[in-house]
Design a protein around this nucleic acid. Structure first.
Lengths: 193, 193
DNA sequence: CGAATTTTGAACCACACAGTCCAAAATGAA
DNA sequence: TTCATTTTGGACTGTGTGGTTCAAAATTCG
């Protein structure tokens, strides 16, 4: 055998994820990646093929973590409307966690910055969208069976609407940093279910 | 006097606007700007202080044009719900005009790419948001007087909701390029008014 | 220990970037 | 025609980028 790694690959991806999260793909230099991971360039390029490759791993991890949280909520015992309102609230809280520099969503950032020029990333985003759609749609259909949501409504359309609202909240938060405004938007959206 | 300009400053800003529109601030190089405007570097740096300055001009022009269209629609004689549904439709159509590479919105792109690091731009976006808010809110209040929208609803909250929905449509369009999906989202949103 | 193997850090590379400079061309006024 | 003034194109600069190379250090196994 030979010399073992001095670092944990998962932790490195995690650190890279946070960097891309706050600065986007282009906004994060390889130097930045070295600093946040604490690794040297060689270690990074030995472990990951390229910046692009590391970004892919970081994006996948981001989606994994976020969707785990979403699924956990959507499969909870709460009434549907409350599930969805809670998800909206999580988004709002996350956007305001740190200052206007902080928040943001890697998926949204990637959708506007990278997706148009990179088919593979676009495919990843599309697949991730479908995952979120299915999870939310299932919860909505359960709600329809419970009588919380009208049965004649199209569950898929409502799920798309919920996803679009989340994105809308995130963009609005970048421009209008007032919690109360976003909460009123969330309330209005829930009333459309 | 001396040699006159060979180009029209407004046309140059317009060309720059289109470039930033499709590629964003960082994604548009000064070389790109030379090509789309047809000007040399000297002419650009003589007329505008910097890339950043030209971007500011381009962004302002974008807002001006877009808000003119919005105002015209909101001040038309249509019923409110139809005004808003039409605006949603315009956004959807615009996003699908060219391929997934094409569409996009300079304001959204700017909000996620540069607003977090540039206070002045963030201020411009915030001001623009207020303009759109006022225009939409006024239309909603007119609708309330006409009895098209319940009078006990908060017109400002609904206007914020409309703006967030537009942003949500735009982000969704980047990821899920199916017109029918976005149109169902638009319908769902209108039903919340 | 010593050989095989891997990681690591630092120097290095070519390139693209935003921005500057300057001489030549173009123009209008005198 | 000449002079003052401005525009224009192209060469240039310094910096930061993503990525490569390579020798030295570190480790495990025989």
């Amino acid at each position: 055998m030979a010399r073992p790694r001095e670092f944990d690959e998962v932790r490195a991806v995690d650190a890279a994820m946070r960097a891309f999260w706050t600065a986007g793909y282009e906004g994060t230099s390889t130097q930045d990646l070295c600093e946040v991971t604490g690794l040297g360039r060689s270690s990074i390029y030995n472990t990951f093929k390229s910046k692009r490759d590391l970004f892919g791993r970081a994006l996948a991890r981001y989606m994994e973590v976020k969707n785990a949280g979403l699924s956990e909520l959507m499969e909870s015992g709460l009434p549907v409307r409350q599930k969805i309102r809670t998800q909206f609230q999580r988004v709002i809280d996350e956007e305001f966690e740190r200052g206007p520099e902080g928040g943001g969503c890697l998926v949204v950032h990637t959708a506007v910055e990278v997706a148009a020029r990179d088919r593979e990333v676009a495919g990843d985003l599309a697949r991730d969208y479908q995952v979120r759609l299915a999870v939310i749609r299932t919860a909505i259909e359960a709600g329809q069976r419970d009588g919380d949501i009208a049965r004649d409504k199209d569950s898929a359309a409502l799920a798309h609407f919920v996803i679009a609202t989340i994105a809308g909240l995130r963009i609005s938060a970048r421009v209008t940093p007032q919690r109360s405004v976003l909460e009123s938007v969330a309330d209005a959206a829930v009333s459309a279910l």
